[in-house]
Design a protein around this nucleic acid. Structure first.
Lengths: 217, 217, 217, 217
DNA sequence: GATGAATGAGGTTTCATTCAT
DNA sequence: TATGAATGAAACCTCATTCAT
């Protein structure tokens, strides 16, 4: 993660597509920056090319369309970082805290948040685009499903046994994390936030209800 | 709310701007549909005009710009319906259930959801645009603030006393409602959903924690 | 046919689509000139706009695509001039020379040639495009079919009775006219040509064979 | 002519330029197919490269420009096959049928048609491009002239003595063959055609007029 | 109030071609 | 020999918006 704040994305893309041409790398980094600043529709390919210092046509040598630039950035980030790496971590954590699902949940959420922050701009764009782009929606669903499956067992320890219960469990946790992420990065991004503190609050709500959660610092 | 599913928006706008020309009404309804289907940037003024069966220029007789179409639809909905009407309801509910804040919260949330469903497409667009459109963000903040202020007292009954605690309280509730709304309208919109059932689940989580919530049907 | 050499095309298009905006007229005339000079693919919409002295976007207000410009020019010319007007003439000529099919054929061919010359550039482009553009091919086939049907009877007087014989008859005559048209306009366009003389030669070939035809002037 | 239907073109080109690199051969075959399907302007170098399974740059190692691909395919075909080989055949035929010019013409036309079919896609492209590409036009004129000169004497036997008469003679025959070729390959290509039958029809027209020709099968 | 006409600016994408390897 | 990478130029087309009627 040296050199460029989004270098991690390049690495993730390379894991997927193999070593890439230098200008393709530049294109990806520039696209990320532009998308983050102006949103997907607010970004033109010319913008990307100029920021990357490359010819506009070069983008289209490496990506068949502008839409594809977003997809090909998003998929590796989700797959290689959010999902499988998360999967590894989840396995490790399950082994580490076999009798403390609460602790396990805490660490899992914190790890997810860590990566959401690392890719914050991309996450925001995805959150926005996903409401309007079915292709992206399907891709996300496909990538996230295995992660959910893996967590299925642990979720059982919280009393969620039927698929419906599990779905609600995931929705609840995802809502709380997502809500916090948006609050802390979009609505009140200027403030200082302590992820562990907020996650502890979320967990307190989850385990003891919101009233009890207020007694936390 | 007869005639057209989004007629309610027209009524809300008329409360703000007075009786409107018939073609303006058509423009609004068409814009809502288009925005909901393709997002704000994915919608062209030509698209709106065609769906409305009016001339493209007519849109600009009634709205100074495309951006204003969205703003002038959103503001009345938020102001006249979500916020103040909600305020009235909130006052009534507070009076009605002075010693049962839990019940009060339930009714309040259900009422909010009722209106979210009535304006579903607009809500979705706003959710999407708010991430990328600061003007919209500020407008929303300004409209929602008084509503929060009004609820401030009740929130105290749940142990949220400091501003920070109140903010977290609101965030938590908003996240859970928002998450449910998206789940039930975007991700799994085809399914049959029972708002009261799901709200009861949310409340169970809020009051007793997620494990206890699983014992519900 | 005053004002502009291709004015006739505008008139034909207007018969089809109703009175047109002045800039649409300019666009059509410019498109014709450009197509004639550089072919369809060799002509850019920018070129057309510049020659017409209008904005490029104006072309697309009146025609959904560049391809459509060609189609919408070609169809009226073929329909209103080559085919039906030809049909009227054919009827008149049949009536005029009921017992002189040779004379009838002569006048018909001469009239066709007259119009081919009037729209020479368009005819050339169509001849070129038709080999590669199936849409254009189908359109032409549909427009020409009724004309052939109408001539069917006269053709019988030359001994062509079965459909196969009629088809060969048309092919033979069309080949000779087409060959002459290309020779006189593309291959040796600079020379002076006398259409009546050449048509008489063609007819001589048709009626007495090529050897006999040589005795003509 | 095994391996690939257009192999004959490769052989003709090799007669001109010597044994060629394998990828050049692939490029030629692919170019022919693409040109035939989409026309010259409708074909991109990328298309050719993809169909040939080679790199786009490889085309430019073997041909200085896209335009040259067409020219370097066309010239050998015309020079080595249509014209000189035809010349040889013509000499042989003149010797073979010194007193039967009609028979001579029949065999000559049939031989020409045989080769037109062998190079059908190229012929079609040339027919199309020649209308818009003066360079190609001049090249063709230069290649065909000697062939015409050689036939000049025989043509005299049909009564065509002055240059003007000869030119008309060639035009007439070329028109009828060209018309038949287009009819049988483009307009009604799906049907079964018997070249000898149709050539006999053409000859009947040429020698006895169209009415007499109808009595043929 | 309503709109057809018009457009400048800019969008994404394709093109034929060059060059370093 | 062969090609992946790269690109300037230009292609077609769309956009939000103005204006005369």
């Amino acid at each position: 993660m040296t050199g460029h704040p989004y270098e991690a994305v390049v690495i993730a893309v390379e894991k997927e597509e193999g070593r890439m041409a230098p200008k393709k790398r530049l294109a990806i980094l520039a696209a990320l920056e532009c998308f983050a600043e102006h949103g997907f529709d607010g970004t033109s390919t010319k913008m990307i090319a100029q920021r990357a210092g490359i010819g506009e046509a070069t983008i289209f040598r490496h990506f068949p369309s502008k839409r594809d630039v977003l997809m090909r950035l998003t998929r590796p980030v989700v797959r290689h970082v959010i999902a499988p790496e998360a999967g590894q971590q989840a396995s490790a954590l399950i082994a580490q805290y076999p009798d403390d699902p609460k602790r396990f949940l805490r660490e899992t959420i914190l790890a997810r948040l860590y990566w959401m922050r690392a890719y914050a701009p991309l996450i925001r764009i995805v959150m926005q685009e996903v409401l309007v782009n079915p292709e992206l929606r399907e891709m996300l669903a496909a990538e996230i499903a295995p992660f959910f499956a893996q967590l299925s067992e642990v979720v059982g320890k919280f009393g969620a046994e039927t698929p419906a219960q599990k779905e609600r469990f995931f929705r609840t946790v995802a809502s709380l994390i997502g809500g916090y992420f948006l609050h802390s990065s979009v609505i009140a991004g200027a403030r200082d936030w302590s992820d562990p503190t907020e996650v502890d609050y979320i967990l307190a709500v989850l385990f003891d209800g919101i009233a009890a959660a207020q007694t936390r610092p």
